[in-house]
């Protein structure tokens, strides 16, 4: 893992740009237990995880709902004290220096949580003041950030008039008001339409190229593949795998995946036949999903030939590159998005 991190930082070429004093964030045996309250049993949300990240990285927490991603993010944001374990950030201890750490990070919460009583510009002005920034500084940065978020012509409207994509861009602009070294994004594109997602990704790439370290959670594979240099996959409060998107795919699944769908009448018989093909010389493994079969193979076309040779005629057959979705399915036996 150690070597992986270093090489990742080296290829990005950002590690040398800012003076680096050890890892930016380092968690050891980090645990969060939500105590039992009002009938609900105690819940171990995060179960002794370790991770570290360097300056300039884009780091992702990937996993389904309830995996512990948001609890981890809240601890990194220093708004939720860890139950046990250590969390060091920016050379400080998150448990004792929360306020000083919060001054240097930016947070984009999952629900936009913009101040609905204020206008777009006032949201930035007021939020900047929460960081103890002077009126003049906040004013100057607000203008730049409105430009960054492409919201200049909405500046004096109430936030309730904004679309979902605009709200999210404003939330990101708001999180940058203190010029943070580290930006936390919790499910940044959930609920946005494809076009709004792409605009947002573009803004995040821009930040990354400026040397801002990003930590994000997502349950979208394509987002993780697009944005993250390195990621951990979480399930049930634990980290089940760690690495770059490519290295995770290489380590846990084959290069390609063949997706097969059968007519309802044939499905049961066909499933048995396909299952018998793996592990074999071509087909390495088969996963049975409610509506389709996934055949893992280094060459999907060869696998399809084998399936056809076994006398099967699928309704549809799709050969695609393996994705993080397949990694997750392989590691946990469950699909990521239910």
């Amino acid at each position: 893992m150690q070597g992986d991190t270093a090489s990742q930082a080296a290829t990005l070429g950002v590690a040398g740009e800012r003076p680096s004093t050890g890892p930016l964030v380092e968690a050891r045996k980090l645990t969060k237990v939500h105590p039992a309250r009002g009938g609900a049993a105690a819940l171990v949300a995060v179960d002794g995880i370790d991770f570290r990240l360097e300056r300039g990285e884009a780091f992702g927490f990937l996993g389904p709902n309830g995996a512990g991603k948001s609890s981890t993010m809240r601890m990194i944001a220093c708004v939720s004290p860890p139950t046990s374990g250590t969390l060091r950030m920016l050379g400080m201890d998150a448990a004792t220096d929360g306020s000083a750490i919060r001054a240097r990070i930016g947070v984009v919460p999952q629900d936009d949580s913009l101040d609905a009583a204020l206008t777009v510009r006032e949201n930035l002005l007021v939020y900047g003041r929460y960081f103890g920034l002077s009126r003049a500084t906040v004013r100057e940065r607000s203008d730049k950030l409105l430009d960054f978020a492409r919201l200049e012509d909405k500046a004096d409207q109430r936030v309730e008039t904004l679309s979902g994509g605009m709200r999210r861009r404003l939330t990101i602009a708001r999180s940058l008001i203190n010029d943070p070294e580290l930006l936390l994004l919790d499910e940044p594109t959930t609920g946005l339409d494809p076009q709004a997602r792409h605009v947002l990704w573009e803004r995040l790439f821009q930040l990354k190229s400026q040397g801002v370290t990003l930590i994000l959670t997502t349950h979208y594979m394509d987002e993780a593949e697009q944005l993250c240099d390195r990621l951990v996959i979480m399930d049930g409060g634990r980290i089940v795998a760690e690495g770059s998107p490519r290295s995770l795919i290489d380590a846990h699944v084959t290069r390609e995946v063949l997706e097969l769908r059968f007519a309802d009448a044939d499905r049961e018989k066909a499933t048995d036949v396909v299952l018998a093909l793996a592990p074999g010389p071509v087909c390495q493994r088969v996963d049975v999903l409610p509506d389709r079969l996934l055949v893992y193979a280094d060459d999907g076309d060869d696998a399809l030939a084998v399936v056809n040779a076994a006398g099967l005629e699928p309704l549809t057959a799709l050969v695609r590159r393996a994705s993080l979705e397949d990694v997750f399915l392989t590691l946990t036996g469950r699909s990521l998005v239910e």
């Binding site: 000083a100 919460p109 629900d111 101040d115 203190n178």
Partner: peptide
């Protein structure tokens, strides 16, 4: 309702 303070505690404000 507005969850203003969930936002504020993520800043240096105590």
């Amino acid at each position: 309702q507005a969850k203003l303070y969930d936002v504020v505690i993520a800043t240096p404000m105590s």
